[in-house]
Computed example of a mutant assay.
Amino acid sequence: MDEPDEPDDFDDILVPTDGSKSARRGAEQAIKFARRNGATLHVLYAMDMGDADYVAVPSDIKETRNRLKKKGEAYVAEVAELAAAADVQCVTTVTSNTPIEAIGEYVAEHDIDLVVMGKRGRSDPDKPLLGSITNRVVGSLDVPVFTA
C-alpha cells in the first residue's frame, strides 16, 4: 500500500482567488506551503460572466469582460506580491469560466498537487462553514484541497 503524500510532495500548489478576505487567508496559507516545499504557486481568477452573454448587448459584454479582467489581474497581482515577498515562485492566470470549471481544468492541465482555498468567498459571505464554490471544489477534485 502506498503511503499518503507528505507535504514535501507538493510541487505545484493552486490558490484560486476572488479578492475576498477569505481568499487572502487561503493565499497566505498556500504561500507558506509553497515556501516550505519549494513549490510553484499558481494563482487563478475566473471571470464568471454568468448569463451576461445572453442578456446584454455586445458592447456591454465587452465592457464587462474588460472590467472583470482588470479586477482579476489586480487580485492575482496582490497574491503574486505576497509570494514574491516570501521568495516563492508564482504563476498567475485570469481565465473566462465558472470558478468550479476553471479550477478543475487548471488542476488537470497543470498537474496541480494541492489546492488551497478560503472557506468562503465574495459570492457567499454568509455561509456558516464552507461556501458553495469551496464545497463543490472539495467534492469534485482528485487532489487534496486545504481550506483556510
Rank of each mutant, 00 (worst) to 15 (best):
I61M: 15
E6K: 15
P144E: 01
P144W: 11
V15N: 12
I133L: 12
A74D: 06
A84L: 08
V76M: 02
N135G: 10
R65E: 05
I100Q: 10
D53N: 13
V79L: 07
P4N: 06
V76I: 03
S22M: 11
K62W: 07
D87A: 13
E101L: 14
G26M: 06
D11L: 14
S132Q: 03
R25E: 04
L68V: 03
P58A: 13
L114G: 00
D8K: 13
T17L: 12
S123G: 15
Y75K: 04
G104M: 14
T98E: 03
V15W: 10
F146I: 10
N66D: 14
P128M: 09
D11H: 15
V15A: 15
D18H: 14
F10N: 03
V57D: 09
D113M: 10
A80Q: 03
G38C: 05
L68P: 02
V143K: 05
I100D: 02
R36F: 12
K70W: 05
K69M: 10
A86Q: 05
K62Y: 11
G121I: 12
V57K: 12
V107C: 07
G121L: 12
M47L: 14
V88N: 02
L68W: 09
A85R: 13
D8Y: 12
V79A: 08
Y45M: 05
